[in-house]
Simulated assay, not measured.
Amino acid sequence: MIPGPSGTGKELVARALHKIGAHPGAPFVAVPCGAGAAADASPYARRGIAALETRMIGEALVRSGNNRSEAARVLGIARVGLLKKIDRLGLQSSAPTAQPGPYEWWELAQGLEVAELPVLVAGSEVDRVLLTRIDPALFRFEVHSAPAGNKGLDDWMTELSAILVINGSYYARKGTPDTPFLSAGRPLGPRDYRSRHGAFVASDDFTGIRDLASERWETAFTDAHDAMVSYPLLLSGDASSRVRADDRWLANRSFIGQDAVGNIILGTTTDAFFSLNRLAAFLRTAPLGLTIALNLDGGPVAYQAIALGAYRRRFCGKWET
């Protein structure tokens, strides 16, 4: 946000940031957001302004722990003004509840589909989930690591000749895994580790997520060729969540889940609307049929790429607060 009274050059700053941003050749579109300007704007611009206000108010409420006075201070408006905006936008006077929007699966090959799931608050899109659904009987899953930290998304896609690459797990300062990790049968990461969350396991007989509340990770890794412990478990078999994280921590998110028929569902958010608790709640209501879901990682290292036939997807996260 670039605050300041009218006429102080906020748009000049925005234009300068656009020129040094990721897409300087794209058009810069200025949308006046004052009350009078919003009333005179086109329907498309009004929807954009409403979405921006919804996002800003929602994040301010999350960061302030639903303290409306503090949220108003963060936004630089009077408390009564905030309450009026909440009422006008149809928001609750608390952190907003996200709802899934309409979406469709698109089959790229037998056993592999992609989709984009809009995340809506009060009818406005505040985030989007890039989804991939895979039949594990038709595709092989592998877990890889580069401790030197010298490989990016394109490097992994090229080196592995992969159809899909997604980030996962957590790493120490020297690039070694913080959690138990199995790559082509080779164990990496700590050997002495206790987990009550989950593990993604790929073996000749089973590919999916194991709930580590009922078994040790060493047992879950038995007979696997590739595996990885991660946390938190966003959705368990009884539809509960094991998230114990600060709701003010918003970031791009990646997750891996499994539906009732055994398909693996991978997701990456394109924006930073979700805290981990909010993501867990969203996945419970999303029409994905998930029976279990495990957080992978988030922030600037949340990425997903697909290359299959003529289809290409390449996304790298940017946001973490």
Rank of each mutant, 00 (worst) to 15 (best):
I49Q: 11
R191I: 04
R68Y: 01
N252L: 02
F273H: 14
L160I: 10
S183K: 05
G48L: 13
E107D: 12
A38H: 07
D247N: 10
S275N: 06
Q99G: 01
T321N: 14
S69E: 08
E113C: 08
D154G: 11
S169R: 02
N263Q: 10
V74P: 00
F315I: 12
S6Y: 06
S93D: 14
I166P: 00
P136K: 06
P3I: 06
S124K: 09
D87S: 13
F206N: 09
A98H: 05
I264T: 03
K318H: 14
L117M: 15
L308F: 09
Q304D: 00
P118S: 09
L164A: 05
R313A: 11
R63C: 03
V129I: 15
V80N: 11
Y44K: 13
S169H: 04
L234G: 01
L17A: 13
S69I: 06
A45N: 11
M56Q: 12
S254G: 06
S203M: 07
F273W: 15
A39D: 12
R312P: 07
F255C: 04
T179Q: 07
G185V: 04
E70F: 03
V74M: 08
V114Y: 03
M157E: 05
T158S: 15
S230D: 07
L294K: 01
T97A: 15
A122H: 02
R128W: 03
A122D: 04
T222C: 11
G65H: 02
R79F: 02
G152I: 08
A239K: 13
I256S: 01
L212N: 05
W106K: 15
T268W: 00
S236W: 04
T179M: 09
N277W: 14
F255N: 02
L279P: 02
S124D: 02
L61D: 00
T285S: 15
F141G: 06
A45H: 13
Y311K: 12
R191E: 11
R15S: 07
D238A: 07
A220H: 07
R186G: 00
G25C: 09
D204P: 04
A38R: 13
